[in-house]
Design a protein around this nucleic acid. Sequence first.
DNA 1: ATATTATTTATCCAGTCGTATCAATTTAGA
DNA 2: TCTAAATTGATACGACTGGATAAATAATAT
Lengths: 224, 224
Amino acid sequence: METGLELDTRSKLLKAAVVQFGKFGFAGTSVRKIADDAGVNHGSIKYHYSSKDDLWRAAVAYLYGLLDEAVHKDEAEWKNMSPREQIINSATNYIRFSAKHPELSRIVFFETMHESERLEWLTENFIRPYTSRAIARVALAQEQGVYVDDVPAMNLHYVNIAAAKNIFLMAPEIKRAFDIDVFDDDQIEQHIDAVLKLTMRPENAEEKPSSDGTGTDKNFSNVT
Amino acid sequence: METGLELDTRSKLLKAAVVQFGKFGFAGTSVRKIADDAGVNHGSIKYHYSSKDDLWRAAVAYLYGLLDEAVHKDEAEWKNMSPREQIINSATNYIRFSAKHPELSRIVFFETMHESERLEWLTENFIRPYTSRAIARVALAQEQGVYVDDVPAMNLHYVNIAAAKNIFLMAPEIKRAFDIDVFDDDQIEQHIDAVLKLTMRPENAEEKPSSDGTGTDKNFSNVT
DNA sequence: ATATTATTTATCCAGTCGTATCAATTTAGA
DNA sequence: TCTAAATTGATACGACTGGATAAATAATAT
């Protein structure tokens, strides 16, 4: 009877939870629907996960694990890459992950709209450490001339991640409004290309890590 | 007793609905909480708005009205502006609006995560017309050399709006993680500066619009 | 002042929510 | 095979949901 391909109840619940929480957020999701999707009795949730909250946390931790895996899978080769190539590699991996698992971004978005215990947990355990490293990485890349350096690293970071994943977050809207499926492989690669072109400093404008002032202008100093 | 400054029940309900739907989405919001916040009996919702759904639609329509007002408030002066200045003007207005009323982006985000009748209504009545015009405007600005032109207008548009409003959507997270209030005026202006620097082509690299030489003046026709 | 309408309030209802309980069943160890 | 533990299933409970109803009150018109 066992095929080895079937998931146990716990795993089935986790997968179904990822999908439901990703679509409807914590408040919009019912544990009964998760259990239905997983094909198990809803009483089992209390057994495998002590509560809806715990199941939500398990889903988040699971997705962050996948993210970490995806973004760092080429880490061993980074030492052979230029700073620019490293950024391209990690950004590409990040965007591909965002396309493959839009649920993570969505779940985080649902929670980041208001204060809650879940947001506190999320921030302490994942967002702050992850974002701190990411912003430090952006600042370094600015010094290395990969990104423009006349913009605060924090703003640049939030623009970067928004640029990367927004189109996948809004996939249902784009599908409905323009009949474009942004999850098509072609669309994904086109988006990667676009984001890299838009966020990175043009290659020929790249400057040496250490010395001089900006090769490209400061002529943008004030726009207000 | 009447001061003239007080809102009537209908308006109080609308304002409270905007806040609640903006924080918790449609599913996460209860009409009783809205009525409590508005300081009225929850039965009044049924009287002034026939249902929770109708109240939600009224809140959305109200916010889109404010958006339209904010983005087009300088429209009369656009004819005196260069294409670049027009983009700066409308983008600045859009970002300021996103900071002042993050509820609209949030409400749309809640709905754009999954298919629903509300998303259909939202798309038909607001998103498609609004986004169509915006993408056409982006394409024109690309021709005019304000944006880079080696990226599809749709991708550029979604990067633009994500860059503009993402930081305000994630305000609670940023506050909690880094104790930064992105709604501070300084932060808002800094963000506007950053977004414009990041999304627009550097001024000195601007190229002539296809035919003749007058690249910087008001030789353009419509905003579609 | 009276009649009519507009608005607000107080309950009620059926359905769903998360969760707790406990019996039924399956699994694993001896 | 027998027993104990692990797991699943069925059911119940109180809280809350959106919506409906009708009585109570306020506002307006005549």
